[in-house]
Design a protein around this nucleic acid. Structure first.
Lengths: 207, 207
DNA sequence: TTTGGTTACTTAACACTGTTAATTATATTT
DNA sequence: AAATATAATTAACAGTGTTAAGTAACCAAA
């Protein structure tokens, strides 16, 4: 059936057009400016056509959220060459902070907005695999650090959540302007770096 | 001028009515369900009347944000009796976590949403005094701990931002459903507690 | 090739949202 | 009582997500 195949191809093609348009609007104008009508304008279809390819707006944001994770994974390729797990842990934190500050829109939809999680809840496998994988990596590194006696022993889940909590807290306070009045805007990256240093130093056995 | 006084009184009375209605909607239905028209319905005025008392919706959210801080300060009264600064620091963290988990809507408008900060930016004194005061308290406690040799010495600003970052991170991840898939919902408060314990233990000199 | 049926897409509309200009009603002052 | 200033309203604009109903395009069988 060559026809069915072609149809399928066209369908995924339009899906891609919609996501590309959403992405463009998202990156250039931000979360709030991604509207169904603007997407439709960009792909030169009527607004209702969008609903033939996606259940609702949340589902589109879910895919943007996935693209954000892909971008983040890409950035984390620089971890592969680092043998020392403690150094790798440090670099992971640095990557996280950099990603959040350099791509606040993506960070927003990945970790702050409710939309993608609501779309996820309406899916067959309601598992947040991308987020879980990321935290899994963190847990692995921590376990390795503990096994080699580089950091103080403690339940990995707790330490992982704590570290993730801190870097997420720093980024989200910053991009939602809760730090600007307290720490001069230009100093924020530096202070974040210092916070990360301080935390990892506190748990370092040779600190 | 008794008339001017009475007028002034009426004006602030209607302002209060608007804020009370907003608060009611906010607490009962959440951030997204606070609309100008619903507020107007509750106070039995037309929607446009709201604009005679508040510049825009963000300004209303700014006041809700302030009410949230008032609520939080109230909760923190239990710190007054604690002489040991390290114990006080611990209780502060606990209060923060409890407040966030028990009043997610308030936490949202206080630390996550952009609206109140935008309203604040349009004011004469664009200073986030409430947030800054809260962090000031944290810095004081930390300084006291360091002076008494209870925790390792480090730049207070850095440690303060780090701790705030972590508790904020934990709460905001939780209330935006980023932890639910990873930590069973009923275990979240316990894990948070453990995270706080772990962090404060890490910096404790007698740990 | 023409008919019938499926699929793809659009038009029109609903029920909302924040916000503003113009208008009416109310209260105060002359 | 008439003129003026203030308060509140109606009507509307320009958006939003989303759905029901109608139209055009394509493919399969007669």
């Amino acid at each position: 059936m060559g026809i069915a195949e072609r149809k399928e191809k066209q369908k995924t093609e339009i899906r891609k057009m919609i996501l590309d348009a959403s992405m463009k609007l998202f990156v250039e104008e931000g979360y709030d400016h991604v509207t169904i009508r603007k997407i439709a304008d960009l792909i030169e279809y009527s607004p209702t056509t969008v609903y033939l390819y996606f259940k609702d707006k949340d589902e589109i944001f879910f895919h943007l959220h996935e693209m954000g994770f892909a971008k983040f994974m890409e950035l984390n390729q620089n971890l592969l060459g680092i043998a020392n797990p403690l150094m790798r842990l440090y670099k992971m934190g640095e990557n996280y902070l950099h990603f959040g500050m350099n791509h606040p829109e993506f960070y927003d939809v990945m970790f702050i907005q409710r939309a993608p999680m609501q779309a996820l809840a309406c899916m067959d496998d309601g598992h947040w695999s991308l987020g879980d994988n990321a935290l899994g990596l963190l847990q692995q590194v921590l376990q390795e650090c503990m096994d080699k006696g580089l950091i103080k022993k403690a339940p990995v889940e707790v330490v992982a959540v704590s570290i993730w909590g801190m870097v997420h807290g720093l980024v989200s306070l910053a991009i939602r302007d809760r730090m600007a009045k307290l720490v001069p805007k230009e100093d924020i990256p530096k202070v974040m770096q210092q916070s990360l240093n301080w935390l990892l130093n506190s748990i370092d056995n040779n600190g």
